[in-house]
């Protein structure tokens, strides 16, 4: 029982981690909590659904959805956040909430407000079958696919951030935007790249969740977004490895909390973790403290 909870929590945690890196990267470069990131994740699921219903195979559909959400992420930044770069933080934050609600309702208009099932026919038949079985623990093929994809994406992301020129520019921006601009970095282009990268990751997370729970609905981004944000805070906001660690830790904590403490308060675990971390250890696992204290 415990081991099974651990496996399920790990699966969930990897998905949170994929969303959390989007929050943490954007926060790193422009110090904005991108509330609309949860909606990007939701759009990832719905766009994949639309691609599949047009007859595309699953991998191609996911790839297209990733590209589309990356474009939406960049558009979001250019249209909504960029004009407010020099405005007070409050204005950008309120705009982010506004965009989140706008996108959510747009999805409701396009796809309807009722939950839709994930198209089973697009998945290979062996997905639901157990891949590994140790005495009481079963790991399905779908979980294996989620593990492999998520881990591969995270390793790739880390490589992009640490090894490429754009990744270096991103890190420079996170340290000091003015200095980075003086070094000849095209600040807006790097910010757009960050949004694209984070949104693409979020889209994959959206597909995996809707596949795992076999459902998608326009408001799904809300709760997942909050939880992923909690994961980013737990890992230390601004730190990409921290977000991954925080996501996994939160996923496991939530599953165990639901299993052993109280299942109605399942969602409360994320809120409680978030509040406690912000109050007592604002730098999280791996971050530097970004919380200004008055």
């Amino acid at each position: 029982m415990f081991e099974q909870q651990l496996v399920n929590g790990f699966t969930l945690g990897l998905i949170y981690a994929l969303i959390a890196v989007g929050y943490t990267m954007v926060y790193g470069v422009i110090e904005l909590i991108n509330f609309a990131h949860g909606e990007i994740y939701m759009l990832g699921a719905f766009l994949t659904l639309s691609c599949i219903s047009m007859g595309l195979p699953l991998p191609l559909a996911v790839l297209l959805a990733m590209l589309a959400t990356a474009a939406i992420g960049v558009l979001l930044d250019v249209v909504a956040y960029r004009p407010l770069r020099e405005a007070p933080r409050l204005a950008a934050l309120i705009t982010a909430i506004g965009m989140s609600i706008f996108l959510q309702n747009l999805a409701m208009i396009i796809w309807g407000s009722r939950p839709l099932p994930f198209p089973r026919q697009a998945l290979p038949a062996f997905f639901a079958e157990p891949a590994l079985r140790f005495s009481e623990v079963t790991v399905t093929w779908m979980q294996i696919v989620i593990y492999v994809t998520a881990l591969a994406l995270m390793v790739g992301l880390n490589l992009v951030i640490t090894k490429t020129r754009t990744g270096t520019a991103m890190r420079a921006l996170a340290q000091n935007r003015t200095a980075a601009a003086l070094m000849g970095i095209n600040v807006n282009r790097v910010i757009s790249f960050t949004f694209a990268l984070g949104s693409g990751m979020g889209a994959v997370a959206g597909v995996m969740v809707s596949m795992y729970y076999n459902t998608m609905y326009p408001t799904m981004g809300y709760l997942a977004g909050v939880k992923a944000f909690a994961a980013a805070v737990l890992g230390g906001i601004g730190s990409v490895p921290g977000a991954m660690l925080g996501g996994v830790a939160l996923g496991i904590a939530e599953t165990l909390g639901a299993g052993y403490i109280s299942s109605p308060y399942r969602d409360g675990v994320a809120y409680a973790v978030m509040i406690l971390v912000i109050i007592f250890r604002p730098s999280g696992f791996l971050g530097r403290s970004m919380v200004e204290k008055a």
Binding site: R89, V226, F229, Y271, I278, I279, V291, E292, A294
Partner: peptide
């Protein structure tokens, strides 16, 4: 004691 975004997030939670 928190300001800005963090305060917003805590109240939201």
């Amino acid at each position: 004691r928190l300001v800005g975004d963090y305060f917003a997030i805590v109240t939201f939670g």
